[in-house]
């Protein structure tokens, strides 16, 4: 009897503990949503909004819909406000950059991981080790070199220079080594018997890779895609140095631009944060089982 009530007490304590932590996790998200719906540029600080303060002006602004703003309360004078370029463009740039980089990363790291997992060749383990050590150097430290490199390439090819999205994508594509390790770890767990019998039936190495191993490895590619997507979506330093004009900005650079030192446009920022953050969050949560297994299977990425 005593043990029963003690167990019940423990469970209640556990629930209270978890619920209070989850409350701490959720409050910032509730507050930012409220701030996006509140008239004026207030930092996220309230859990509800009074009906007379409710306004869609921030949402209209970031969606590029023109709206009227009262300039002079005495005369009732108004002016039309429309964002230029529309912050939606930043979201689009971000999706484009993250989508292309993630696809490219899958392509590059998938093929490389195949060679490491299924083939024996010279320098195999030393290349693997070098990849692992070098991937720990953060991109921030190489910014000066990126700047010089893109500047040079841009002088010969307008397309991949400074202030271009392909230039940024090219830099992101280099971050493949973690993913090579992750995919290789998965390939290692896939039994080779099917590939071997296909080889005996006359399939080439490339065919077995394409037709047999790849379809069996769809889950790990989903994980790599999602993690790369989120990582590139959140990347700030490289994007802020490479992208110089507001029409090429990504979400991360654009969102920060609303928070100048002198004037912080919290309301506008909040609406952009909700709009940009929500889709990724939902996709991530839907795939969380995959992601969790990918992380625990040896990939290290925060």
């Amino acid at each position: 009897m005593r043990a029963q009530s003690e167990l019940k007490l423990r469970k209640t304590l556990a629930h209270i503990c978890l619920i209070s932590i989850i409350t701490l996790v959720l409050i910032p998200f509730v507050m930012v949503t409220i701030a996006s719906l509140r008239k004026g540029q207030f930092p996220p600080s309230a859990l509800f909004v009074k009906p007379d303060q409710l306004s869609l002006e921030h949402w209209k602004f970031i969606l590029g819909i023109p709206y009227r703003e009262l300039v002079n309360p005495a005369t009732g004078e108004t002016r039309v406000i429309q964002a230029s370029p529309s912050p939606l463009l930043w979201l689009w740039n971000s999706v484009l950059v993250s989508g292309c980089s993630s696809l490219g990363i899958i392509l590059l790291s998938g093929t490389a991981a195949y060679a490491f997992a299924r083939m024996r060749f010279r320098f195999r383990s030393s290349i693997l080790r070098t990849l692992l050590i070098l991937q720990m150097f953060p991109a921030v430290l190489s910014l000066v070199a990126y700047y010089v490199l893109l500047d040079y390439m841009g002088q010969h090819f307008r397309l991949i220079g400074l202030n271009t999205l392909p230039g940024l994508i090219a830099i992101y594509l280099a971050g493949i080594s973690v993913n090579i390790w992750m995919i290789k770890g998965y390939f290692d767990t896939v039994p080779t018997s099917m590939e071997e019998s296909a080889r005996i039936d006359g399939a080439s190495q490339f065919q077995t890779f394409l037709r047999i191993l790849l379809p069996m490895s769809a889950p790990i590619f989903a994980v790599v895609f999602i993690l790369s997507f989120i990582y590139t979506m959140s990347e700030y330093p490289v994007a802020s140095v490479v992208l110089q004009t507001s029409d090429t900005w990504t979400l991360a650079v654009g969102a920060n631009s609303f928070l100048y030192e002198q004037e912080k446009l919290w309301g506008t920022f909040s609406a952009l944060a909700v709009l940009g953050g929500l889709p990724i969050t939902i996709v991530f949560l839907l795939c969380q089982k995959f992601v969790a297994s990918g992380i625990t299977s040896g990939g290290v990425k925060e």
Partner: peptide
Amino acid sequence: LLILPYAVPSVLSILIFKGLFSQEFGA
């Protein structure tokens, strides 16, 4: 629910916290 902070792009959550911890008007 506990995974949420990992799922939201960190740039956005960091900037949200900048507002929450604002000295004068922060939550």
